[in-house]
Simulated scan of single mutants.
Amino acid sequence: MTDPKKDTLILRVADIETDVLTGIYSEETGKPQPLRITIEARMSPQPAYDPDTTLDASKNYMDLRHAATEGLPEGVHFKLIEAVGDHICETLFLQDERIEAISVTIVKLAIGIGSEKIGITLHRERP
């Protein structure tokens, strides 16, 4: 049996593309900007996962996706994408006490040239 104190479980939903009201420049305000969001949530795993282990032993990945899409308040303009990441972190911490830390990576798709990926990663530990 594995010692759960040495194991870490990281749930990951990558490359969610969604439009969010964000930006500080006049050409950005008033219209949604396309973002690519990746979320990683760290949890303590249970001691073992058998083939018939039920979902309540982990977290539904769709909750992570929801925090980055429908969970963002409609009609709210986030000046900074850091604020979008903050909202996602707080939403997930409120949803599940088992989450110990969250990393949210956000790429602003409209401002990159070629294959550039311009954005931020916000990592937050549970207070």
Rank of each mutant, 00 (worst) to 15 (best):
S103D: 10
G112P: 12
T91F: 07
L92D: 08
R98N: 12
V107Y: 02
H77N: 09
V104S: 13
R98Q: 15
R98I: 05
I99K: 14
I106S: 08
L109W: 08
D96G: 02
T105A: 11
R98W: 07
A83C: 08
D96R: 06
E97A: 14
D96H: 04
A101C: 10
I88R: 10
V84D: 15
S103I: 00
L94I: 00
D96W: 03
R98C: 05
I111P: 10
L109I: 12
F78K: 09
A110I: 04
E82W: 05
A110T: 10
D86P: 01
Q95F: 02
K108H: 06
I99P: 13
L92V: 05
L72I: 01
F78P: 08
T91M: 01
G75K: 02
S103G: 13
H77K: 00
E82D: 12
E90P: 01
H87W: 11
K79N: 13
A101K: 14
I102M: 10
A110E: 12
G75H: 00
G75D: 03
E97G: 09
I88D: 07
G85D: 11
D96L: 05
L92T: 07
L92Q: 02
L72A: 04
I106E: 09
I88C: 11
G75V: 05
D86V: 09
I106C: 08
C89R: 03
I102Y: 11
I88Y: 08
I88H: 06
G75E: 00
R98L: 05
E74K: 11
V107E: 15
L92P: 05
H77M: 10
S103N: 09
E90S: 10
V84C: 06
E97M: 03
E97Q: 13
E74A: 15
L72E: 05
A110P: 03
H87T: 12
E90A: 10
H77W: 09
L72G: 06
L92A: 06
G85N: 10
E82I: 01
P73T: 01
E82Y: 07
V107W: 02
F78L: 00
E100A: 13
L92H: 05
E100D: 10
T91Q: 12
K108W: 02
E90W: 03
G85T: 08
I81N: 07
G75T: 02
I81A: 08
E82A: 12
I99R: 11
L109H: 01
R98E: 11
I81V: 15
G85V: 11
A110C: 11
E74S: 13
H87A: 14
I81M: 01
V76S: 00
F78R: 07
G112Q: 07
A83N: 13
A83I: 00
E100V: 04
K108D: 06
L72Y: 05
G85Y: 08
A83F: 07
E97R: 13
